[in-house]
């Protein structure tokens, strides 16, 4: 029997108002234990106030070899950025 506990990815929100951020991974037998292990391993120095865990095998990742087709098209869509538009200085901040 393979008695290895599955691997989990850990995401922590460091304070209210921020997003959860990936901090690393750990092994745990089940989800409850993964949360507790994450608390014990990754928040020993008050690093967080909320924890997400997800089994590593359930993460779906984009393919790095498709980097160009996935992300390059966004590069010329500069009209999505506020600096694309000219607003007279006297209008001030908009």
């Amino acid at each position: 029997m393979d008695n290895n506990w599955p691997l989990w990815e850990v995401f922590i929100r460091s304070k209210k108002g921020l997003s959860h951020k990936h901090v690393g991974s750990l092994h745990a037998a089940d989800a409850d234990m993964a949360i507790e292990n994450a608390r014990d391993v990754y928040t020993r120095r008050m690093e967080g106030e909320s924890i997400w865990v997800v089994e590593s095998k359930d993460i779906v990742a984009s393919n790095p070899s498709q980097q160009e087709e996935l992300y390059d098209p966004a590069k010329d869509k500069i009209y999505r950025h506020p600096t694309f538009y000219d607003i007279p200085d006297e209008i001030g901040h908009m």
Binding site: M1, N3, N4, W5, A29, D30, M33
Partner: peptide, 16 residues
């Protein structure tokens, strides 16, 4: 630790 790790897995499997 082997029986401990096995126990936790067995319990997790039962719960699943």
């Amino acid at each position: 630790g082997e029986w401990v790790r096995e126990a936790a897995l067995a319990y997790a499997e039962k719960q699943r």
